[in-house]
């Protein structure tokens, strides 16, 4: 049986890395007693696959995990059970069974929507930077890769970009950024747009699978009333 979980990550736990999150999940699934399927070979690992890595420090409403089980289970109460075992700031918001033939998350997801709280600039400057970006035919950056300078055009990856609203210390941007062939990261884009744009909080709100005119989430959930950042500690 293949299950797909959706979960969020916010608050202090956002400082755990992608690798840490994978290990947290392994332990939680074992504590919950799920009949995980293991890989073969010298050091068998549970067969889990995570989607696109979330940079350390970013928050998310839309993280996914696919897990293979040895046998079918009743999973309707899993979100609650797993959330109780996960660290504060990580909660499971949905679970579905997926066909064993389903594309991996890495292959399937085509874009992510982000909300970025930037500081140090007012709405005006941010709006100008956004307008410049949208008007540009290319946004060329050079970066170092394996010791070599390579140039990249970021523009095709910018599917949508907007200033949402002012915040206490700056403003909030929304961006939909492509993930194929390479996932464009919000920080990269900000840097290329306007070096003064400093991201305070970056939050992945959606991962999208687009095919033609259709688009859907890997696992849709009913919109929840404003996600809260409040932590109990």
């Amino acid at each position: 049986m293949h299950l797909r979980f959706r979960f969020n990550k916010s608050g202090k736990v956002r400082f755990t890395s992608h690798r840490d999150v994978a290990r947290i999940w392994e332990r939680v699934l074992r504590r919950a007693g799920l009949p995980l399927a293991y890989s073969e070979g010298f050091s068998p690992r549970p067969r889990l696959s995570f989607g696109l890595a979330l940079s350390t420090g970013y928050e998310s409403d839309a993280e996914y995990l696919d897990a293979r089980l040895r046998e079918p289970i009743d999973f309707h109460d899993l979100p609650e059970r797993l959330s109780a075992l996960l660290p504060v700031g990580m909660d499971v918001t949905g679970v579905v069974e997926i066909p064993s033939s389903a594309d991996s998350l890495q292959q399937a997801v085509t874009s992510c929507r982000w909300e970025v709280d930037v500081i140090g600039v007012d709405e005006q400057i941010a709006a100008e930077a956004v307008a410049r970006a949208l008007a540009a035919t290319e946004i060329v950056v050079t970066r170092e890769r394996k010791g070599k300078q390579v140039t990249d055009d970021l523009r095709p990856g910018v599917l949508a970009l907007d200033v949402l609203e002012p915040t206490e210390s700056g403003c909030r941007l929304a961006a939909e950024l492509g993930t194929q062939p390479r996932a464009l990261r919000p920080a990269e884009l900000l840097n290329a747009l306007e070096p003064r744009l400093e991201a305070l909080v970056v939050r992945r709100t959606h991962q999208w699978i687009t095919a033609g005119d259709e688009r859907c989430e890997p696992l849709a959930i009913a919109p929840s009333p404003a996600t809260s950042n409040i932590e109990v500690s």
């Binding site: 392994e26 332990r27 939680v28 699934l29 074992r30 504590r31 075992l85």
Partner: peptide
């Protein structure tokens, strides 16, 4: 310990 921690 294994039950409480989830270690393998």
């Amino acid at each position: 310990g294994l039950e409480r921690t989830g270690y393998d």
